[in-house]
Simulated assay, not measured.
Amino acid sequence: MRKLLIALSMVLSPLTVAHAEVSVGIGISVPGVSIGINLPAYPRLVRVPGYPVYYSPGVNFNYFFYDGLYWVFQGDYWYASSWYNGPWERVDRDYVPLYVLRVPVRYYRQPPPYFRGWRADQPPRWGEHWGRDWEQRRTGWDQWNRRAAPTPAPLPSYQRNYSGERYPRAVEQQRSIRTERYRYQPREAVTQQHYQKNRSQGGPQDRGPGNKNDNRGPDHR
């Protein structure tokens, strides 16, 4: 009996390790969490000058948009969603896109206390705050050719049609509407995996409320 248990543990151990590697690769540690954001309507998004990132000056959160996802920094954690009101997924700091981390301090609407004294026109000192190990894993995160920054992703302005009771809360509805209305192909691995994970949920016939009558705006690809 003991030999059988040992043999089973040897067979199952690689499966457990493989599952852990997949979770780390995606970089999403806590899916579908609520972080207290409940915007009454689609927020105004303004491009950060010189960056392929947008921020929301009228929202009292550290709220950004980059590469097809909304990004929020809250409580020393990063969260991402493909819809402006969530649901949100917590993203490990090792997988947050570099251009999001590079956004200058002045564009954080609710900067944490440790931002005090840092230059407003420079990125937060993540290496100083998160430690040497993190900075070694993300060497060069604060060094880039500013003239070679990528073109920003188009804003998903179709989401203006969904607020209040019309906002799709189910991930399947969100995925279906986004697939039909937003043709952007993300460049970042974490965004690609977020999209791929959502595509694996729900059937191809799912539709959101009022989806057939929506008009596509100029921001879509």
Rank of each mutant, 00 (worst) to 15 (best):
G217L: 13
F64R: 06
H220T: 04
P31E: 14
G27H: 11
D133H: 07
P154Q: 14
I26L: 10
S13N: 10
L101F: 04
P52W: 12
Y54K: 03
R138H: 08
V46F: 09
R106N: 09
V48C: 10
P209F: 14
Q174C: 13
Y107G: 03
L45D: 02
S29K: 12
G25T: 08
R221M: 08
G202H: 08
N161A: 15
G140V: 00
R132F: 08
R44S: 14
S9Y: 05
R47L: 13
V100G: 12
N198M: 12
R160A: 10
N60L: 09
N38W: 13
P40V: 01
E172T: 13
V105A: 02
V46Q: 15
V48H: 12
Y54H: 09
P209N: 06
V96T: 05
R2A: 09
Y70G: 02
R2Q: 07
V48K: 08
A189I: 00
P112Y: 06
R181W: 10
P113A: 11
F65I: 02
N215F: 08
N211W: 11
F61V: 01
R109N: 13
R90F: 06
G86T: 11
A120V: 01
V30I: 06
Q185A: 05
R137S: 14
V72C: 08
Y167T: 01
Y63F: 15
I37M: 04
N215K: 10
Q185C: 07
V59F: 03
V72T: 06
R44E: 15
Y84Q: 05
A170C: 01
R221E: 08
P57I: 03
G140W: 08
V53L: 09
W130Y: 15
D76A: 14
S81D: 11
Q196N: 05
W88T: 08
N211I: 03
G36V: 12
G36M: 11
S13F: 14
S176P: 02
R183G: 15
Y108R: 04
P168L: 09
K3H: 10
V72L: 03
T151C: 03
S157P: 00
W88M: 12
S34N: 15
Q122M: 02
A18W: 12
Q185S: 02
A148I: 00
N38Y: 07
R199K: 12
P87V: 13
A148P: 01
V33I: 12
Y182K: 06
L101D: 03
L69N: 11
Y108S: 05
Q122F: 02
P87A: 15
N60Y: 07
L39F: 04
P104D: 09
V11P: 00
D67L: 04
K3N: 09
R146A: 14
T191E: 10
W71E: 06
I37K: 05
V22P: 00
R178C: 02
P154F: 09
Q196E: 06
S34P: 00
E180I: 00
P111R: 00
E180D: 12
R175G: 13
